[in-house]
Design a protein around this nucleic acid. Sequence first.
DNA 1: TGTACATCAGTGAACGCGCGTTCACTGATGTAC
DNA 2: TGTACATCAGTGAACGCGCGTTCACTGATGTAC
Lengths: 237, 237
Amino acid sequence: MNAGRTARDRARAELTLEIKDTARRQLAVEGAARLSLRAVSRELGMVSSALYRYFPSRDELLTALIIDAYDALGAAAERAARHDQDPRTNWQAVCRAVRAWAVAHPHEYALIYGSPVAGYSAPPSTIQPASRVAMVLLGLIRQAHEAGILAPLDDAPAPSGVLAEQIAGLAASAAPGVPAKGLTRAMIAWTQLFGMISFELFGQLVGSVDPSEPFFDHATAQMADFLGLAPAGQPLS
Amino acid sequence: MNAGRTARDRARAELTLEIKDTARRQLAVEGAARLSLRAVSRELGMVSSALYRYFPSRDELLTALIIDAYDALGAAAERAARHDQDPRTNWQAVCRAVRAWAVAHPHEYALIYGSPVAGYSAPPSTIQPASRVAMVLLGLIRQAHEAGILAPLDDAPAPSGVLAEQIAGLAASAAPGVPAKGLTRAMIAWTQLFGMISFELFGQLVGSVDPSEPFFDHATAQMADFLGLAPAGQPLS
DNA sequence: TGTACATCAGTGAACGCGCGTTCACTGATGTAC
DNA sequence: TGTACATCAGTGAACGCGCGTTCACTGATGTAC
């Protein structure tokens, strides 16, 4: 089978993966700004010019790594959100999955959520993969709302002005039907989640809440309350 | 006056500042990982080896920039917190000041809150300057608590286990007397604040809440509620 | 099934560039008497 | 106040290194007939 797939095709696909793996390993040592084609080729036992058969430039290799990282993290988040779990459990599971991936792949996390690489600007092809985690989180809120177990958040202030429009636009495209207050809090919780993970990985928590897993779990639980996700025990309808 | 300060001393101090300014400008173009002594010296019209009279190595220059950045941000935060303002107003003022500094100095912000620079590890001399913003925020909570206008947060879960110990340690060293629930929420709000700013500066909010100032203000207000800081109008005793 | 030709992976040399750091030096500035 | 000496800023050459990218090439793999 594998119609039309020649040995050349297979070798090419395999080497493309090997190049990316090697580059990922180098990321850990040198950081994205110093990712070097020559070093990658050296580790692979190839001549540096050979890499140009696979990636037209260093930046294209970086882009491939970025997309892979967003996709790997997005997939981890998607796996954690299960239809047979209540939204609050899902929320915590997704938060833990995101953190677990970040802790396991700190340099890839830094590549996508750290400071932008100087002289590199991410192409549009990264946008969709970049949104996967946010989509999962918004999906949970929507799941809770549709199941009728998203708290009305009566004492939360409603967004107004420009923010209200932005939230409405977001609802239209990603979470139809979800009330603005819930969506706004979802955005806040989203930034809190990644703020916490970045602080942990980038060393800002050293000396305060370190090790930080207990803080992380406590914070995601409080954010679940903040989001109006009912405590577990309220099964989906 | 200026006892003992010779022309040489003054020239030295001035050039040290110029070197750091030039390096800061380069940060904006190249990013921290690519900060180059030779490029700095070129821009100053000096020979590269001359810089070694001022900084013993590239890493020491980086360290100086990092400390300066933490100090500048810390000073901005400290200026925003005023004794004649109620804690909630102070909270919002400090959040705005931190964001304003970050937006005005995105590359210095990235230097201190972005991904760690590969091959560089921050020396202990950066720890104290790095803690200034957090100290200001904890100070506000303490101010509110001592004024008796920090909500008791009855429905917030109390931290337990390892986290409870960490929070107690933090209270002892930085916010004596402040209840654990309030301090825990302060940590959560602290990570939310920087998560939001990093997302804005690093491009993660493009396409959702962009421009992000309305979201920022709304979020800091909600976090003030979350912290139990009474709405303005309740003057300090 | 065999052959002629086209495609493509990988080579090796080269271009032109930049980097951090060391070192012996010159000449100006500061200090002690 | 003037002189002898010490200190220090800045020079210029050099060391040894790494980088991305181009280009003409060889030889293996694939395709069409």
